[in-house]
């Protein structure tokens, strides 16, 4: 059974790059461009992995993660946040909100998969 991933980023480039990499790794990818959209997707489907940017319009990544963790099916789902270098306080905020791990931008597809493998069986 293909695994499903939800990719949340307001940048289409990032969305596409992350999606492409995950699709090649065998994930079925759903995309969203902000936290609000992502929550709608989360409510409508099931995902084995969520990757989210933090700085987004409408609903930012931290708020999204907090909200996601309140949904029963996502209580234990791995959630990776995309952070920028030096964003330690953001990492901590994300952790407090329930993030599983982080990925520091810029990253290449190999790095992305390495990190994904750390959190998805």
């Amino acid at each position: 059974m293909a695994r499903a991933a939800l990719v949340v980023d307001d940048s289409t480039t990032m969305q596409e790059m992350v999606s492409f990499t995950l699709t090649k790794a065998g994930f079925a990818v759903t995309r969203a461009s902000n936290g609000q959209e992502a929550l709608t997707s989360a409510n409508a489907g099931k995902f084995d992995l969520v990757i989210t940017d933090l700085n987004m319009p409408v609903m930012d990544g931290i708020t999204f993660i907090k909200n996601l963790r309140t949904l029963a099916p996502f209580k234990f789902t791995p959630v990776l946040m995309l952070t920028t270098e030096g964003g330690d306080d953001r990492k901590q905020q994300g952790r407090a909100a329930g993030a599983t791990g982080w990925l520091t931008k810029p990253f290449d597809p190999d790095k992305l998969l390495t990190i994904v493998k750390k959190v998805v069986p």
Partner: peptide, 15 residues
Amino acid sequence: TAAEQAAAAKAPTAE
């Protein structure tokens, strides 16, 4: 994990 039963079905984004 709910992921165990997660269908690969892509969730359509409503909005």
